[in-house]
Design a protein around this nucleic acid. Sequence first.
RNA 1: ACGUCCAUAGCUCAGCUGGAUAGAGCAACAGCCUUCUAAGCUGUGGGUCGCAGGUUCGAAUCCUGCUGGACGUGCCA
Length: 590
Amino acid sequence: MKDLKEYWRGVICRVINLIAENENRGTGIVSPDSIITETPPDPEMGDIAFPMFQFSKILKKSPKEIAEQCRILLESEHLTDKKAGTPEVSGAYLNIRLDRIRVTEEVLARIGKQADDYGRGNVLNNKRITIEFSCPNTNKPLHLGHLRNDAIGMSLSLILEASGALIRRVNLINDRGIHICKSMLAYKKFAGGSTPGTEGVKGDHFVGKYYVLYNEWADKDPEAEKEAREMLKKWEQGDSEIMELWKKMNGWTIEGIQKTYSATGVEFDQVYYESDTYKLGKEEVLKGLSKGVFYRDKDNSVWVDLTGEGLDKKVLLRSDGTSLYLTQDIGTAVQRYNDWPFDTLIYVVASEQNYHFKVLFKVLSLLGYTWADNLYHLAYGMVNLPEGKMKSREGRIVDADDLIEDLCKLALKEIAAKGRDSEISDLESTAGMIASGALNYYLLQVSPYKDMVFYPEESISFTGNTGPYLQYTGARISSLLRKYSGNKEKYSGGTLKPGLLAGKEEWEIVRMLADFPGVIENAAEQKNPSVIAVFLFELGKHFSRFYHDNPILHNKNRDLIATRMALAESVMQVLKNGLKLICVPFLEKM
RNA sequence: ACGUCCAUAGCUCAGCUGGAUAGAGCAACAGCCUUCUAAGCUGUGGGUCGCAGGUUCGAAUCCUGCUGGACGUGCCA
């Protein structure tokens, strides 16, 4: 489809230039790049549209006349390959009607051949991309905000990979700092030696409970804050008892978070820990100091002056020599580049940190790292609740595990309500995949940079524009396929005849299938998974309609069976490949 | 105060580098299960694309101003 578009773009360019020359309006006045291509609103009008408005001024005539002149010229001069399509005039547009049979044949053949690789492209041609996402703290479990981050990061990494990039998914665990000490302190005070094991609680929730307990305690006793600071000091000095507790509690949290990751399909190639990288950050700042790009204040703190860049002055090292969030991020970036030199590093971090990343990128550039120009902050918007912003302090927070559990229960209920229990061998895992499909789709159908509102009732809905709708479409085709290959004497023996798919409905589906590689390319270029989600829903709708109106297996004509089956199978393949990119599990049965 | 971003149907969101009558889901209402999974399909109603200018043959899309909202401008993360 893309090649056909390019072909016609070239042809139209030649023809316009020819007209211009013949009428002494100049030579080579338009280039192929400047020619706009579109898709007509109705397939009956053609498949590729060239609006002629832009040439009206140059050629001093109406767009309609130009379109007509183009068409006549194309026919009389035999400037085109008949098989590539036929031009038609529609108002101010020159539309190209493609050879449906030929395109259908080619597309179905290509999908069959490329199978799981169909749609993959190479625009990013082995570009090395590191992508950072998730980045949890080790003092509490994940919430809805992390889930959006995870979904965007994971999906984007897959989309870029499908566009030919070499991808390295990295996580950064925020495992040090005062907030970690707070939960440790509360644990020491109130836990009485209990563990996630003795309490039967998931590790991250167990630790999170002590963080809450700390805050309750600190609200009435100022001593708490003091003790926490003391503990942080001890931690930085490497006090063995504190270190041991720290390791133990971090272990619990990370183990718990890992379980959440596997429920939603999140994976990393490498995990970094702030406790490892903050020292390197310190060193980098001192290097910058000796280079003279930073300066030391009289209270011993180290600063960078970015007022010339339209930013502010910023502290890089505290007066007591300890490091900050920014310091640590400097070290982490350098570490990453050394570990695996990248062409681009993408940070998937909420838009509230826009300023932070502006500063970080500038600082790295001042330190002389040329790769600092290739850092990219993918700023995604907030997830809000109908009643407003999520606030953990007021208990207005959607816990990730609770949400997933609710979705699983609901999925199980749905399966039972539809009487599908007996068909499905592993109910728990199927419900889990429906839950993660619903969740990831809900979070990814919105453009990343926009804030979104999370409606609990809507997110757990399985009808309409949802992940389960797409899973259902895939499951029905899978079911058809099982019947088809399981009853050869009844259904097989026909041959694929693309001519049987020349109807409007079928053609729209074929065109979408043909567009799929371009859709992935778009999504990669825009760094926007919702492009894939929107496309798949459209495809699902078109197929469902076709499927509803046209019997596939219940036909006397074996050729028709084989042909429609081939179409269904191609839809299934594209669905499968696309769903993978937005972290919605494909299900053969549901 | 300044900076960045957002504003499309009752609600949640699409709308590609400006282009043919502005779309979907949910909710509401009305239909469709002796046939391949009704988690489905069909139909109806619902819009001054925040407001006002400008650029253009042509603007939801680009520019300016205004209004409303989010976030940020910590020796927090």
